[in-house]
C-alpha cells in the first residue's frame, strides 16, 4: 500500500444514492485471479450500452472528459451489497484515492481502507455543497487532521477515522503486517482457549 497523507484534486460527482458494489463492478468481471486491471470495468453498465466500449453512455460522468480528478463524490449509502473487494480495487485502479459520501456501507469502508482508498464521510449539507460546486473546483483532504476542505471557499469539515487506520494510511502499513507482528499473542490466545476446554 502506498502512503497517503494529503489529496488535493478536482472531483468526479456521482449524485446517486445507494450505489451498490454490483454497480461499481458487476459480478461477471470478478473472474480475474489478480488484483489489477479492474478499473476499466468500474461502473461498467452505467458507462457503456450493451457492454460495448464503442458505445459509451455519453451522459454518464466518467464518459465526460471535462470531469476528472482523483476524488469520487457520491450520494449516501455508498458501497452497499456484496463484500467484493474488487469494488475498492476498481476504484483505485481507475485512479481514485478517496470517495466522499454522506454514508458508507461497512464492508466497503473496510475494503477501501485496506487498499489505501480513504472513505471520507461528510454531512448531508456538506455533500450538497460539494455537488453544487462548479466543475473543476478542487477539494483538499488532509488525513492527519481528518479534514476535507472546499478550496474555493475554505469551508471545511472533519471526518472520522480511527488513529490506528490513520497511521496505516499515512505510512502505507497494512493490517496483515500488524497481525503478523503479534503472532505470539495469537498463539498464546489459542493456548489459553485450549486450556479452558
Amino acid at each position: 500500500m502506498k502512503p497517503l497523507k494529503h489529496i488535493q484534486s478536482s472531483f468526479v460527482p456521482l449524485p446517486v444514492e445507494n450505489i451498490d458494489t454490483d454497480q461499481i463492478i458487476p459480478a461477471r468481471f470478478l473472474k480475474s485471479t489478480s488484483r489489477e486491471g479492474f478499473g476499466k470495468n468500474l461502473f461498467r453498465d452505467w458507462r457503456y450500452f450493451n457492454n460495448d466500449e464503442a458505445q459509451p453512455k455519453t451522459d454518464f460522468v466518467l464518459n465526460k472528459p471535462e470531469y476528472k480528478g482523483s476524488i469520487l463524490v457520491a450520494g449516501k449509502n455508498f458501497g452497499s451489497g456484496s463484500s467484493r473487494e474488487h469494488a475498492a480495487w476498481a476504484i483505485l485502479d481507475y485512479g481514485f484515492y478517496a470517495v466522499v459520501s454522506s454514508f458508507f456501507a461497512d464492508i466497503f469502508k473496510n475494503n477501501a481502507l485496506n487498499n489505501g482508498v480513504v472513505p471520507v464521510q461528510v454531512s448531508e449539507d456538506f455533500l450538497d455543497k460539494i455537488f453544487n460546486l462548479e466543475n473543476g473546483s478542487t477539494l483538499s483532504i488532509d488525513i492527519e487532521n481528518q479534514s476535507i476542505t472546499i478550496d474555493a471557499t475554505g469551508e471545511s469539515e472533519k471526518f472520522d477515522i480511527n488513529n490506528y487506520k490513520k497511521t496505516c494510511l499515512m505510512n502505507g502499513y497494512d493490517d496483515i503486517d500488524y497481525l503478523l507482528n503479534i503472532k505470539e499473542d495469537i498463539i498464546n490466545f489459542e493456548k489459553a482457549i485450549e486450556g479452558l476446554k
Partner: peptide, 12 residues
C-alpha cells in the same frame, strides 16, 4: 469480509 481480510485469516 473482503479479500484483504481473507488474507489476514490465512496468515494469522
Amino acid at each position: 469480509i473482503g479479500t484483504s481480510e481473507v488474507e489476514m485469516v490465512f496468515a494469522t
